[in-house]
Structures are given as C-alpha cells and as structure tokens.
Amino acid sequence: MNITKTLDAKGLACPMPIVRTKKAMDAINTGEVLEVQVTDKGALNDIPAWAKSGGHSIINQREEADVIIFHIQKA
C-alpha cells in the first residue's frame, strides 16, 4: 500500500486533528491514502466517524506507544 501523504497531528487537541485531516484529504486524489498520526484520544472515535460521513475508508488503524495511526483512503 502506498501512502500518498503523512499528516503529523500529534499533540493537537480536538478539533484540530480533524480540521487538519480534512485539509490534507482535500489535497489528495480519490483512491490515494493519507496517514494521520494523532495523540488526542478523541480521534479514536471521531476520525472513523468523520471518514464514514465522507465515505472514506479506514484501511488500517493501530496504536504505537501513545500515537494513534490511521490510514485513510479517499473516496
């Protein structure tokens, strides 16, 4: 899987991780994949919910230490 772009949203509090994620998604093409790194625990529920509302797919989600990593494929 190719990651088109990586967004470092570590240390940012809600709503900034999603605000930045949305901007980054706007800048990539359909089918491309964005990696988002966040530390705000609220992202665990909010990023999948946001992705779902926009039709994007979370193709991978994992936690490394305190960092939550999402791979989101643009719809």
């Binding site: 809600c14 709503p15 999603i18 605000v19 949305k22 909010d46 919910a49 946001w50 509302s53």
Partner: peptide, 11 residues
C-alpha cells in the same frame, strides 16, 4: 432540547 451534529460535519 437537543440538536446533535458532529463538529466534523460543520467544518
């Protein structure tokens, strides 16, 4: 009374 709209739909 309530209205629930997630913030990420209001960006």
């Amino acid at each position: 009374e309530y209205l629930n709209i997630p913030y990420f739909e209001l960006l």
